[in-house]
Design a binder for these strands. Sequence first.
DNA 1: TTAATATCTCAAGTTAACTTGAGATCAAGA
DNA 2: TCTTGATCTCAAGTTAACTTGAGATATTAA
Lengths: 158, 158
Amino acid sequence: MTIFYVMKNDPFMSIGQIAKRTGSNVSAIRFYATENLIPFTRSPSGHRLFHRSVIRRISFILISQNLGYSLQEIKGALDSLPENRTPTKADWERLSKKFSQDIESRIKQLKELQSKLSGCIGCGCLSLKKCELYNAGDYISKNGSGARFLLGDKPDES
Amino acid sequence: MTIFYVMKNDPFMSIGQIAKRTGSNVSAIRFYATENLIPFTRSPSGHRLFHRSVIRRISFILISQNLGYSLQEIKGALDSLPENRTPTKADWERLSKKFSQDIESRIKQLKELQSKLSGCIGCGCLSLKKCELYNAGDYISKNGSGARFLLGDKPDES
DNA sequence: TTAATATCTCAAGTTAACTTGAGATCAAGA
DNA sequence: TCTTGATCTCAAGTTAACTTGAGATATTAA
């Protein structure tokens, strides 16, 4: 009588189903689960059971990863979303504040690089000496641990 | 008589100087050099000598890494820039085309995420069922090898 | 019922991008 | 000259984010 956890329309899914729905490997889902990025319970026989809402959680993980966030950062963000109560405004503000600032500065950086690039294409750019991209200046990139000082060289005989 | 490669105003710099100017570790510069991301010659005694233009090359590397490109991709881009002649318009177009498209789609993704986020903060968002970010749909993220299908779940009892 | 899938655990392997360490040589300042 | 401090090579270690493999149990389809 396993109908208790296998009944139709119940919200629990197997690890394989979750994997298929998110386009991930089973091993990756297992990894996220053991790293406490996604909640799960167990069937009587020991198989993992996931609520379908973890699909969205995984989506959030994959999107954020694609934007360059580490699993630790993502876990931090997800942790601020309560599993057992609906999120409050404060929950969301906490989740989004850091992300929002980050996103803004990323967009800014990308736009700068973009305009340097298109300027380059348009200008016919026959010399590195004059190239805007190559000579792009005043950059400080943060990279996890501490700032790096870039493009400190003067544009002359390159 | 080492004046030949140590003379004042000559454009060659030691690995330590390059490291300092780019804010990187000596070991990282050595790594880039052995991976052929930056050109160098040797002093008679075997020490690496870098032209100051590699500072800009390294800047390009660090910026691109910050945007999520791998060293292999970056090497591909840098390889299209000739070391011994000034780049032609075609060189630049090759270099920038892929980057440019990439950047555009990244900006687009970030803007979407951004608007979802700010919508969330503004809306008071007391339920996951109504949350725009949590329910953000129709995403396909590319991740190196193959597409992933995201957020395929319907927003109901999460 | 039986064969094929799917899961499980636990340990070890993988790739990228470096870093660290050992042991040796080189260069620069007092 | 002597002694730090910079470099060198080569091998091995490190972290993140998974993947792979072995050996065992569960579930499903025919």
